[in-house]
């Protein structure tokens, strides 16, 4: 009987999501479009463009974005989302969906969704972090009645946070690693807040029309860049930076400081753990 090659040699499996150049190109393209969809109220005045449809734009863009997010997810999972990464994403999304309403949301800006995304992105890599950002917010919204036009934007920003956590230098370990992740947490908390406010701003305050009954914090289409920037900065400072964003930054940093080391250990152990049982 002819001997066929009967040796299977599989290296110790690692959990993660591979990002090929196709996935990267779509992530970059969708991120640029996403940034425009978030930043148009300031971007257009900055290049001195008049703005129309300002009142509808948050909705129109919110309707367009999900399609693009889905496209990115489809592209990444086409590249290779194995069962381990998938199950891990599901479980971690569920944990995020549990701790978000349990510890945060409503209680003085305690936002707990970030630290796990950051830690998991660090351990499992940028592709995993990116997807976890998407799925955590999506699962949390579906489970706790948070679906709305803001959801695609939140998902995208959380995806960026996970992506960034995965892209941080690999070699930093020990105390430096924790400090670095805390730094990312703080930056992410404020940037997330500002970006979402940028979207919320015309959405919540309303858009000033033709001098009729304009509130002084409103977005005024066609007004000079500096005017709109001032209005926005005041809006974001008053509504969230001092309260929500700082709360979010503190929560994230403290959570990473206290839980970072043990959680990284647990996650790293899980990354290489795949024996089907202990016997």
């Amino acid at each position: 009987m002819p001997r066929v090659d009967d040796r299977i040699d599989i290296p110790a499996p690692l959990v993660g999501v591979q990002l090929g150049w196709r996935s990267w190109s779509l992530i970059v393209a969708s991120s640029l479009l996403g940034l425009f969809a978030l930043g148009w109220p300031l971007l257009l005045p900055a290049v001195d463009m008049p703005t129309e449809h300002a009142a509808d734009a948050p909705f129109i863009l919110a309707a367009m974005l999900p399609l693009i997010l889905l496209l990115v997810v489809a592209q990444i999972s086409d590249g290779g989302l194995d069962s381990k990464a998938l199950a891990m994403l599901g479980v971690l999304s569920a944990i995020n969906a549990v701790i978000r309403p349990a510890l945060g949301a409503g209680t003085a800006g305690v936002e707990s969704v970030f630290f796990l995304i950051i830690l998991a992105g660090r351990v499992f890599g940028p592709g995993f972090g990116f997807l976890l950002g998407y799925t955590s917010l999506f699962a949390s919204a579906l489970l706790t009645a948070g679906v709305g036009p803001w959801l695609p934007f939140q998902m995208m920003c959380a995806g960026w946070v996970g992506l960034a956590a995965g892209l941080l230098p690999r070699r930093v370990r020990g105390k430096g690693e924790i400090a670095m992740l805390m730094g990312l947490g703080v930056v992410a908390a404020y940037v997330f807040g500002v970006l979402l406010n940028l979207w919320f701003w015309p959405f919540v305050t309303g858009v000033g029309v033709d001098g009729v009954a304009t509130g002084s914090l409103d977005y005024v289409p066609g007004a000079p860049f500096l005017d709109n920037l001032t209005s926005f900065l005041w809006f974001t400072l008053l509504t969230s930076t001092a309260g929500w964003d700082t709360g979010r930054a503190i929560t994230t940093a403290v959570a990473i400081l206290v839980l970072g080391r043990p959680l990284l250990t647990v996650l790293r152990r899980a990354a290489g753990m795949s024996r089907i049982s202990r016997s």
């Binding site: 489809a74 999972s77 998938l86 199950a87 599901g90 999304s93 699962a139």
Partner: peptide, 9 residues
């Protein structure tokens, strides 16, 4: 895959 992740969660 996205659907499965959410079903799992």
């Amino acid at each position: 895959e996205l659907g499965t992740i959410l079903i799992v969660s």
